[in-house]
Amino acid sequence: MAAAMLPSRNPRIALPYVVPALAMLAAVILLPGIYVFWLSFHASSFGQSPVYVGLANYAKILADPYFWRALKNTVIVVLAVVHIELLLGLGVALLFAHGLPFRKLLIACVLAPYAVSEVGAVVMWRTMFDPEAGLVTRWLTGLGMTPLEWSVVPMHGLFLVALLSIWLHLPFSFIILYAARLSIPKDLYEAARVDGATAWQCFRRITLPLLMPAILIAMLFRYIFAYRLFSEVWLLTGGGPARQTEVVAIYLYLEAFRYNNFGAATATGWLMVLTSLALALVYLRKLYREMLARDS
């Protein structure tokens, strides 16, 4: 009661504390984002003054087959990576939730790829899939299968990109799902067992529905982050052969920094922003309501 009367509850006092964070975000993300939006309606290059061209930049990329290929590749890789990764993450989370000896050590093993850089992961997977001497290549030929020709066949290249992406990010999905699984009360399972439920019924009726919010959150975040995919592709195939494994971020980079099509790059950039926000819309709406409920 008395606290509400104290001048220290005045929200203006909070300003100096939150302003540094907001200023950094404004300077590094917000203002550049708005500037990209403005630039996407202009023809310009580094060091040239921009000329208004309306939607010409957008028309240009939408008519560019390389853009569409990059978009298609991105969609394929993102869909594959996110869904397979979540399935694996769910499987590992349930395996661990069942109770294991040396749990801490084993969790450390599952988390290990989180410490690996994108460059390091590319070195590892490239080596294992080396067309001549790679360990996996030798296994595959030993089993009578055709090894991956990732540097020649575009789909093979994208497959390897997806594989190493899943490897690199599985720890994230695992932790989210594992923490969510641990927070399900044990009584629910005990009650179900008393009623004679099978393991499958427990999974369908208890685990899955109660994990759904965490699964959706993890999926959303992985969509947004997988969509940014750049380094893995850049370091593995460079977008080649013949620009066939480009993803949207690679397309943007090449247009801006190699082909000097700044307009096309800014239009691509703004399309990336819009799609990211569209993906996040459901989440942001829910969050907005929660925050207003909490803070006002």
Partner: peptide
Amino acid sequence: WKSRFLAGSAFAMIALRLLPPIVTTL
């Protein structure tokens, strides 16, 4: 502390984080 500005700016913070970093490099 709580206020509409604080709630709104916290929300903006989270939304901004969702923008792809490569876009801001341009």
